[in-house]
């Protein structure tokens, strides 16, 4: 119970720190949101600039802006985007839905694929197929996702004409969405799988030398049983950590992949907000990401306890 309370306090403190950083970091960036909003070649008087600044609440002292921000948060109001002319909550709702579809599916597929193949490759690392897979995944993990995305686009969309170049769909039907999502999801899933593969492979190689694996073999268990009933459970702890970390990635999207495939996801939203000094969008996006990571870490803590009895055993 005391441990649980400690955790709650720890998470609450982390949350407050995150909220404070969310407010401070965008304002530490150089640049003026008002000038950015007006544009390069437009002349407006100082009076209009001040009026705009006041409308955005940026004329107030920082502590007042901060208290207003906290007050809005408590009312679940994430503010209003300077550039997208819409409440931040609405923007995030729309973008998160698409990002979950695109990055979420990729992360799940990548985790499943990478974990299973990595486990098998770690179990029998000497086979030719596993060596080849290992080389392939190392190459993939070293390839920048941006380059991988462009390469896939060049081959499958341009040369072979199998897939479209951009967007979530042509017409909003499941078939069109699946057709448009195939390439970006494949690229992201491969990238995610490569990381999971390498971690899982290393982890299984380490675990299979442990005494419990030898004991299982001595009991007469088959290879597959030893791997999938005993070793994989212990070897998956780093994967759980990685999955928790990937939650942040999930909500921040995959900027470069989104740019290549012209996808309206969280990545481009955050990037545009940084370029445009759209403080409310940055605050809202970072908050969602932070919450997702906190939640994922809490889940990871729980999963550790399920996967590894040593974690729940008192020291």
């Amino acid at each position: 119970m005391r441990e649980g309370l400690k955790k709650v306090v720890r998470y609450a403190a982390s949350f407050f720190l995150i909220v404070t950083l969310n407010f401070a970091l965008p304002r530490l960036m150089p640049g003026d949101p008002v000038k950015n909003l007006i544009g390069e070649d437009v002349y407006v008087s100082e009076g209009v600039m001040e009026e705009l600044r006041a409308g955005m609440g940026l004329d107030r002292p920082l502590y007042e802006q901060f208290t207003a921000y906290i007050g809005d948060l408590l009312r679940l109001d994430l503010g209003y985007s300077y550039h997208l002319h819409s409440p931040v909550a609405d923007i995030l709702r729309d973008r998160i839905g698409w990002t979950l579809l695109f990055v979420g599916v990729s992360v799940l597929l990548g985790t499943a694929l990478g974990t299973l193949l990595g486990a098998y490759a770690g179990w029998k690392p000497e086979t030719k197929a596993n060596r080849l897979a290992c080389c392939g995944f190392i190459t993939l993990s070293c390839t920048p996702p941006y380059f991988l995305a462009l390469l896939c686009l060049e081959i499958f969309a341009f040369k072979l004409g199998l897939f479209p170049f951009k967007g979530f769909y042509d017409v909003p039907t499941p078939g069109s969405i699946a057709h448009h999502m195939f390439l970006p999801v494949t690229v992201m899933a491969l990238f995610s799988a490569s990381r999971n593969f390498l971690i899982m492979r290393g982890s299984v190689i380490q675990e299979k030398g442990q005494l419990y694996a030898l004991y299982a073999r001595a009991k007469g268990l088959y290879d597959t049983s030893i791997l999938f009933r005993h070793v994989i459970k212990n070897a998956s702890l780093p994967i759980i950590t990685l999955l928790a970390l990937d939650f942040g990635f999930l909500f921040s999207g995959a900027l470069f992949t989104e740019i290549v495939f012209s996808l309206n996801g969280m990545g481009t939203l955050i990037y545009d907000a940084i370029i445009g000094k759209d403080y409310p969008v940055l605050q809202g996006s970072f908050l969602v990401i932070a919450l997702a990571v906190l939640l994922a870490n809490m889940l990871a803590d729980l999963l550790y306890e399920v996967a590894d009895p040593r974690v729940r055993r008192p020291a």
Binding site: L150, L153, E154, F158, G161, F165, K166, I259, S262, L263
Partner: peptide, 18 residues
């Protein structure tokens, strides 16, 4: 009017006749 976030992809789309 089709907008592309990446100029290189826009050029590929043109070369492809899109």
């Amino acid at each position: 009017v089709h907008f592309y976030s990446n100029v290189d992809v826009a050029t590929l789309a043109l070369e492809n006749g899109d």
